[in-house]
């Protein structure tokens, strides 16, 4: 039974990775799959899904093609999510490494800053940053990156501190290795390994934050995004619930696949992630 479950997890990772790949391909080929600006009116408003084969998933109140919106939205959601997570992880690694290797004073200072960032409600900070910086895709990436690096930083710092005291680091010191070699060749590779387990969760989280910002109208007005589509459909909950249901489903599937693929990757590398 346990073996079956493990197999399932492995299969989940592979399946998640495959679907993720498909979503990424769709996002990359968006202008080829659904040519033209998805914000243009193309058909009669509020065509129900499956009613017209040309607009398979129907149209919204302004006659925009929902399927085209989803396809183009994938591009925004996935790239913003991935970029923001990458930014968060990079900042986290940098801060965590510095704190772990520095003396007590710098470590303390960096940890207070990390704590401060962790204490401010994450989404509130992202919201404030976007509203001050202006709603562009780049600013959304910056805002999410700034508000979600602390977990990575804490993890990396803890690992660095743990490995700094390991016997094999003492052994390397006795073998005459310099402190830079010890930091970069002996400690860091081990300390960064558990970060892999955080990648899936961080990207998924970033996609969710991006969609929530877009839902509140804080996204680039010239780009379609899944969260924005939901906000748009909100006014027609009674007559056209599909305008809300479909983009939400897209978000959920994307985040699920990212998490599964991340889990699968961590399992593959033998990192037991529990976060």
């Amino acid at each position: 039974m346990i073996a079956a479950l493990r197999e399932f997890r492995g299969a989940g990772g592979v399946l998640g990775g495959l679907v993720l790949l498909v979503i990424a391909l769709i996002a990359a080929a968006a202008s080829w799959i659904a040519p033209g600006d998805p914000l243009n009116m193309v058909a009669r408003p509020l065509t129900q899904p499956f009613a017209d084969p040309r607009y398979l998933l129907g149209t919204d109140q302004l006659g925009r093609n929902v399927l085209a919106g989803l396809v183009h939205g994938a591009r925004v959601s996935m790239s913003v999510g991935a970029a923001a997570a990458a930014a968060a992880i990079c900042v986290g690694i940098l801060v965590g490494t510095m704190a772990g290797f520095s003396g007590r004073r710098i470590d303390n200072g960096l940890m207070r800053i990390t704590e401060a960032f962790q204490t401010v409600p994450t989404f509130l900070l992202a919201l404030a940053l976007v509203s001050v910086l202006g709603a562009s895709a780049l600013n959304v990436v910056v805002a999410i990156g700034i508000s979600s690096w602390p977990p990575t930083a804490r993890l990396v710092r803890a690992e660095v501190l743990r490995l700094k005291g390991a016997d094999y680091v003492d052994a390397a010191r006795l073998a005459g290795r310099g402190s830079l070699a010890i930091a970069f060749m002996e400690v860091l590779p081990g300390a960064l390994q558990p970060v892999v387990a955080l990648i899936g969760v961080t990207v998924g989280e970033a996609i969710l934050v991006e969609s929530a910002l877009a839902f509140l109208g804080l996204s680039d007005p010239n780009l379609v995004s899944w969260g924005g589509m939901i906000a748009n459909g909100r006014a027609l909950l009674r007559t056209a619930p599909y305008l809300v249901v479909l983009p939400g489903l897209a978000i959920a599937i994307a985040v699920l696949c990212v998490t599964l693929a991340g889990d699968g990757l961590a399992n593959r590398l033998g990192i037991v992630g529990r976060r």
Partner: peptide, 30 residues
């Protein structure tokens, strides 16, 4: 653990984790 209930709860957690809160709320309203 290892049984169907565990698999169900674990998978449910994954799915729940992937859904945006505002969308879940709107589904509830609908």
């Amino acid at each position: 653990r290892g049984g169907p209930l565990d698999a169900g709860i674990t998978f449910g957690a994954l799915v729940l984790n992937a859904m945006p809160g505002f969308w879940l709320g709107l589904l509830g309203i609908i």
